[in-house]
Design a protein around this nucleic acid. Structure first.
Lengths: 158, 158
DNA sequence: TCTAAACGCTATTGACCATAACATTCAAGA
DNA sequence: TCTTGAATGTTATGGTCAATAGCGTTTAGA
């Protein structure tokens, strides 16, 4: 993030035609906005995503949350520990090796706050597009992720 | 990045309807692919972007590169130092306070390699979309960044 | 039963962004 | 001319997030 104070000289931007670059920049700046919106709640975007998934699926296993969000086990552990330390989430062993996650009352309250906060955030950025545009955008993003994950899988197997 | 081995139970995903979340995931996974593509060159995506901008605008000032790429001065310094240390870039004072950046011969060679590499990367992900879809996608991403930067500016002034 | 997989955890690393503070240099107005 | 403010580069530091390696435990299947 950085204001763009009319640079003196005109330069050619070789990245202007790269879709991936624009995707990266757009994502970065929108995530930055979300992060500042979430800061008063004491949540990072990653923590927030865990909170919402657990709120919608009480009792879900920690490993399943990680799979859903694309967060590896090794990174889920300290993340959930942090939420537990703030009494937002409760861990209960189900399996002997799996942990079942549930929100505390405080966590559920925060989840409600966060949901309206995110709804506003989304409206602010994507509300200006009409429905067909939004639909096409969503379709593109989902397809991009699918092909990327497919490629990553191929690379992993090789 | 993480393979998605058919999670046992069906869970509801509250993030499925969030455009910002899909944007984030798509960006992350595509950037990860780019990073692995760039790794053999010994470049990170950020370093690569600097290399390309300097290649296309020989003699551009370091601060202008940062503005163009949305990289702050404080983060440009070690980045360019690293490229200079690998003899890819050369710094020359122009102003007494400004630095003029130029690619070395080696840097220019690497830039050529990187350009074809990125062209393949882009084709792999965005080549499947037809032209109108690509155009709309690009337009959306640019608009998203514009509104986000406008909002960030408002927040900064308050 | 034995072996492989899954799960959770720790430690560590790397990439990237952000802020604060500092010194230098330039520019512009009093 | 002098002074003030802005611009530039730099260092130090911390935060977020992803990734890998490795460990011990537990479960399930051959």
């Amino acid at each position: 993030m950085q204001t763009d104070p009319s640079s003196e000289t005109e330069y050619f931007d070789p990245l202007e035609q790269l879709y991936g670059y624009h995707l990266r920049r757009a994502s970065a700046v929108i995530m930055a906005d979300l992060a500042t919106e979430l800061a008063p709640c004491g949540l990072t975007p990653a923590e927030c995503s865990v909170l919402l998934v657990v709120s919608a699926n009480s009792g879900i296993r920690q490993s399943d949350v990680g799979r859903r969000l694309g967060i590896k086990r090794a990174n889920m552990a300290p993340l959930v520990t942090g939420l537990e330390g703030r009494d937002l989430i409760a861990r209960a062993p189900t399996d002997g090796r799996s942990l079942s996650l549930t929100l505390t009352a405080e966590g559920e309250t925060l989840a409600r706050t966060v949901r309206t906060l995110i709804a506003e955030h989304e409206a602010r950025f994507f509300g200006e597009f009409d429905a067909p545009t939004r639909a096409m955008l969503l379709k593109c993003l989902i397809k991009l992720r699918a092909t990327a994950e497919q490629i990553a899988e191929e690379n992993a197997s090789s």
